Amino acid sequence: MYKPVFSTQLIRNNVSITGHAGDVMAEVLLRELSNADIDWMINAGHRETIESDRILVELCKQPDEIHLLLDGTLAIVIPPADQVSGKLSDLSIGDCGHYEVMQLSSGEIVGELSLFNLCLMPAVAKAISPSLVLSIPRQQLVEKLEQDISFSSRFYRMIALMLSERLRRLLEMPGQIQATTEQAMKEVLFVFSEFRDSDVDWLVAAGEVKTLSAGSILLQTGKPVDALHIVLDGLLQISAPEGKYNPLTLCFECAEKNAKFEKPIATLSKGEVSGAVSFLDFRPHPTTVRAINNSLVLSIPRQVLSMRLQQDISFASRFYRVLAIQIANSLQAVMNQLGCSQTIYTQHQEMDMNVEYDDELDLDSLHQVSQGAARFNWMLKRLGIV
């Protein structure tokens, strides 16, 4: 029989990790969505009671439904890197047992990444206690997001907030995250295909191009974010404090002194956005971002951008979708360092036709990348950079 469960504690590799209170995401959802949005979700979906160990999102498979957790507890589980070979889809559920990295409570949504044109995260979402979910057909939700701009702006903002909270939770345990090298991840220019030419025009007019010399800091752990930054050229490194830390002391400490207590966890390259997490939730920035080499960023002041988002609901819908995609990319990168390494093709490597590479692109994705790159390059020309 179903009984409400509100536990937020999990054990991973014999390390106790305490999650945030279960009411946080429920409050975010109720704050961000309107009564009409909630009524639509109720009418489109169906409530279902699920038992412990029920899989809601399978490993590397696109779900047919998006699930909103009304009560109970789910877990996000990823396979360990040393157990991955060949196609990730060949992994059994049992391979994931030792890498439960996060618990989700009421108000969380799973299957949301299938709404974006992203490689599916090599992870499983399953119930770890009797739970109550509202399941909405994915295709029906996609059509609603395409047809109702007001709904999509609120929904994508809510998803971006949810993903940013998950990213913050992962960044609170840097000891579990492998350090990265100063190598650029693949450029994510495809997100610019989400924008219209008028959006790019506005970004160019509202933003300011800033030059960062190698080693200079763009954002510092613990400090507030007063602008959103788009990387135009160069390579930036993201690092997180190791162990417990006081954001206030870090904020008022010399950044160079803090550097020796931080671990590099990811990089940012062309087209990526820096400062998105704190822009959304108004909390101090959870990481330090510094230039690895001479770099250029386009900085859009928070107040100017916030005003635009309030005035133009269509722009807001596209902008929050882009932020959700960017944060999802960062979340995937960190989760891959926790457990499952993706099977990625590298230059000069002989391609195995029997292996499904995670960075392979279908024709639709190739078109999106091409369109995004063209729009990004056009923005660079407008800024006089190329």
Rank of each mutant, 00 (worst) to 15 (best):
A324P: 07
M162F: 03
L236K: 07
G271C: 05
L298S: 09
A324R: 05
V5G: 06
V84W: 07
Q310N: 15
E262R: 13
R375Y: 08
D64S: 12
A240N: 02
H348F: 08
I265H: 04
P174Q: 02
C119H: 09
I128G: 10
P79T: 12
F315E: 04
L298N: 11
I55D: 01
L338T: 02
T8D: 12
N354M: 01
I385F: 05
D226P: 04
I313T: 13
Y320N: 09
I177C: 02
F315Q: 02
S92D: 15
V209W: 00
M1E: 14
V101M: 09
D201N: 06
S341D: 11
F261H: 14
D359T: 03
F155M: 12
L383N: 06
K61N: 13
G215K: 09
D233M: 03
M121L: 14
D364K: 07
T267S: 13
V322E: 05
A259R: 15
R31V: 09
Y156V: 00
A373F: 09
L232K: 03
Q62D: 10
L104D: 07
A44I: 13
N13F: 06
A255H: 09
S114W: 01
I42A: 03
S269E: 06
G19H: 14
L203G: 01
M158T: 07
H285V: 12
I313P: 04
L171S: 01
S193C: 08
F6D: 13
H348R: 02
D37H: 01
V289E: 10
N377T: 09
I128Q: 10
L161C: 13
D281S: 08
T346E: 05
H67R: 06
L236V: 11
T181R: 02
A373V: 10
M379E: 05
L218K: 00
F190L: 11
P301Q: 09
E356Y: 04
L115G: 03
D197R: 00
V77M: 12
N117D: 14
L29F: 13
L167Q: 00
S153T: 09
E350G: 03
F116M: 11
